[in-house]
Simulated scan of single mutants.
Amino acid sequence: MNRAGPDGDAELLRAAADGDRHAFEELYRRFAPWLAARLRTRCADQAVVDDVVQETFLAVWRGSARYRHDGDVAGWLWRIGSRRLIDALRGDGARGRLRQALTRVRHRQEESAEERVLAGVEHGDLGGSLERLSPELRAVLQATVIDGLTTREAAVLLGIPSGTVKTRAMRARRQLRGELA
């Protein structure tokens, strides 16, 4: 099964959800490395990342995660994986793992793929405006807008109170509105 592109991915996912083992294996081969790499930008613990990737695809196989055919398959898998990562980080020792992951993210020298995409958006001056946001404001926007996490989930991921997430999101939106007006 060698389907490519959004329609092929959706067809592959549909076949996998219907119990087609070969389709599931192809889906896993196609998306598991990408999902693991993206999750590693949020968590430095490789064992946790590996578990989350497995849990994500297990949810697809068991049918407990339902694709509604209203978006990109990769985005749908990312949403499942990121939520499962939040759940994993909430478990025993989550504060320590979260602190370790955040320290790694804050101190890495290389930009993540998501940060490069955000910086490269060229609708008006959005890319430049996003780049001019402080790292704290940009992190909140990334967690809540790009990754689709709730305020509470973003707070757990970023290690800050929910009220701080709301305040930073409001400040980021205000700054972006001011620059793009």
Results as ranks from 00 to 15, higher is better:
residue 4 A to I: 01
residue 5 G to P: 06
residue 8 G to N: 04
residue 9 D to I: 13
residue 10 A to R: 09
residue 11 E to D: 04
residue 13 L to R: 02
residue 24 F to M: 14
residue 24 F to G: 07
residue 31 F to N: 08
residue 31 F to M: 02
residue 32 A to G: 00
residue 35 L to D: 00
residue 36 A to G: 09
residue 38 R to C: 02
residue 40 R to A: 12
residue 40 R to F: 07
residue 42 R to A: 10
residue 44 A to R: 02
residue 45 D to T: 11
residue 46 Q to R: 11
residue 54 Q to K: 10
residue 55 E to Q: 12
residue 56 T to C: 13
residue 57 F to K: 03
residue 61 W to F: 04
residue 62 R to N: 01
residue 64 S to R: 15
residue 65 A to R: 11
residue 66 R to Y: 09
residue 67 Y to K: 07
residue 69 H to D: 15
residue 72 D to H: 05
residue 74 A to I: 03
residue 77 L to M: 06
residue 79 R to Y: 09
residue 80 I to V: 09
residue 81 G to S: 11
residue 81 G to P: 10
residue 81 G to T: 02
residue 86 I to E: 13
residue 87 D to W: 06
residue 88 A to L: 00
residue 89 L to W: 06
residue 89 L to Y: 01
residue 93 G to L: 03
residue 94 A to H: 07
residue 94 A to K: 08
residue 102 L to H: 14
residue 102 L to W: 05
residue 103 T to W: 11
residue 112 S to P: 03
residue 117 V to C: 04
residue 120 G to C: 06
residue 123 H to V: 05
residue 125 D to C: 01
residue 126 L to S: 04
residue 130 L to G: 07
residue 133 L to G: 10
residue 139 A to I: 04
residue 139 A to G: 02
residue 147 D to Y: 02
residue 151 T to P: 11
residue 154 A to S: 07
residue 154 A to P: 13
residue 156 V to Y: 15
residue 158 L to F: 11
residue 159 G to I: 02
residue 161 P to H: 01
residue 161 P to K: 04
residue 166 K to I: 07
residue 167 T to S: 02
residue 167 T to K: 06
residue 170 M to K: 10
residue 171 R to Y: 08
residue 172 A to T: 02
residue 177 R to G: 00
residue 178 G to Y: 06
